[in-house]
Write a protein that binds this DNA or RNA. Structure first.
Lengths: 198, 198
DNA sequence: ACAATAACATAGCGATCGCTATAGAATGGA
DNA sequence: TCCATTCTATAGCGATCGCTATGTTATTGT
């Protein structure tokens, strides 16, 4: 029928992801994006819609490629405690992987937004809330199984581990290395409530 | 000699602080700043230099007015443990105070920066590192006083509490309330190393 | 070969960015 | 009163923002 696309859409999307990961949604201009993707603006808009839709697609790809460790850990471990411990340990490794920008895109890419990007900010906020809810679901599972003291505030415990993970992302972006973040993860697990030995 | 300034410089600076606190350095335009400050651009540039110097002055004011609780807590408490505990408890209250924007300006105001604002980003990074170093200094004091196990990794312990504080700031901006953040603070203190009872 | 179709690069749209030249208004000293 | 000085407001500077109209080039079916 007609001429075919001359660039690799997936590779371009990955390069856009890396650019957004580094500098965030608003601070990454279309000029930087096209330079990183190796294409010109009309190709970007034809293939991805506009900057916002490109970012939304980037977020979905990020969750599948770079954020899936958390989903897997929460799904595969036998207990909530082991699941949370694994999420923290793997976050220390992922957030400091020299193969890509430090920290977590969902946590850091839409922090400083003007009013015109409020929807983008809200989208990532919902992503963070979903992560916290997934952690809480596993904690509630431990609660139902009698692995936690009955007086445990599972919402607060989930908020605590969500906060530790978000802080680890900030620490990673500030230069803290993998080994130290792994010790942070170990320390965070010391707050896990113990069942009384009666 | 000449005409005198018709606006309150301190009040204008405070309004600029609130604007930067809400949306961050780059996402807050000079147009928004002048609207919030109740002045016109020439008055802003005459009184504060330029946008970057205004932000630097805002950061200094923030540290004196809104961030001083941390400095005071770390200076006044008798032990490092009590100091850290008070910083966490007061952070829960400060970060959710309905009288001003949520979270911490030093942690959140320069996360998404383009290359032209890298120096601003680096300035806040140094502020966060200074806070972590101040926490570590009190922890090292407890270490020297024999209040911590000799094998304690004080750098990792400081990084852990810095991460918790940074995560609490993110949680506050995402809508978590004061009571829940106070429970997060309590949980975080459960990781404090105990001296072995030999 | 030729028309139809779509991706391509160039160039530039209106809007906003940080910032400032210019001119008018208000205050001081002589 | 008059000048010198400094703040104030209007208007607009060059640059960049996200985005697109236009024309060209390449690939298809016939």
């Amino acid at each position: 029928m007609a001429r075919q696309r001359a660039f690799d859409r997936d590779a371009a999307l990955e390069n856009a992801l890396l650019a957004f990961w580094r500098h965030g949604y608003e601070a990454t201009s279309v000029a930087e994006l096209t330079a990183a993707m190796g294409i010109r603006p009309p190709s970007l808009y034809a293939a991805f819609g506009d900057k916002r839709r490109l970012f939304e697609e980037v977020v979905r790809r990020y969750q599948e490629v770079y954020g899936s460790f958390s989903t897997r850990a929460l799904a595969e471990e036998p207990t909530g405690r082991q699941a949370v411990e694994r999420v923290l340990r793997e976050a220390a490794s992922e957030y400091t992987d020299p193969g890509h920008p430090p920290g977590c895109l969902i946590i850091t890419a839409a922090v400083n937004c003007g009013p015109e990007s409020a929807e983008v900010e809200e989208g990532l906020r919902q992503g963070r809330e979903a992560s916290k809810a997934a952690i809480r679901a596993r904690i509630d599972g431990d609660m139902a199984a009698g692995l936690l003291p009955p007086e445990t505030d599972t919402a607060a415990l989930a908020a605590y581990y969500a906060a530790v993970i978000q802080g680890m992302s900030t620490q990673a972006r500030d230069g803290t290395g993998r080994e130290e973040l792994e010790r942070v993860a170990e320390l965070a697990m010391l707050a896990w409530p113990a069942v009384s030995a009666t």
